[in-house]
């Protein structure tokens, strides 16, 4: 069973995604602040995918991505953000090993998201 970490400052969104993932037999971990993501990843727990919000009040998504690269965690990431000009940040995403189709803008179709999550997990 794959374990997915959801990072979003909106608890309601965490709720919805958790329900979706649980409904589809995933294990779910979540973080509302984003500050504990590195700790979670460092404590030896196996995380198969991180769903990451970019714009959060305490820590930005890019900071988390930097830390993950720093610690060479190799965990696949799916960006789920409220607003971003993904073309403008394309190069930046590439540096973190992300393609533009790994960057999703809310609101997303849950079916499509599910398909994407599955495909990412298959690849990893």
């Amino acid at each position: 069973m794959s374990k997915i970490l959801i990072v979003d400052d909106e608890p309601v969104i965490i709720d919805i995604l958790t329900k979706l993932l649980l409904l589809n037999n995933f294990e779910v971990l979540s973080s509302v602040t984003g500050e504990d993501v590195i700790d979670i990843l460092n404590r030896g727990e196996k995380i198969d995918l991180v769903i990451l919000d970019m714009k959060m009040p305490k820590i930005r998504g890019t900071d988390i991505l930097k830390k993950m690269r720093e610690f060479d965690m190799g965990v696949p990431v799916l960006i789920l953000t409220g607003s971003i000009d993904k073309y403008k940040h394309e190069e930046e995403f590439k540096q973190f090993g992300l393609n533009l189709d790994d960057v999703w803008q809310k609101p997303v179709d849950l079916y499509l998201l599910l398909e994407k999550i599955k495909s990412k997990l298959m690849k990893s």
Partner: peptide, 15 residues
């Protein structure tokens, strides 16, 4: 600000 609640509304409906 709007996309997050939209996500909630649309997600809730889809769920």
């Amino acid at each position: 600000e709007v996309n997050n609640p939209l996500m909630v509304i649309s997600g809730t409906a889809q769920l």
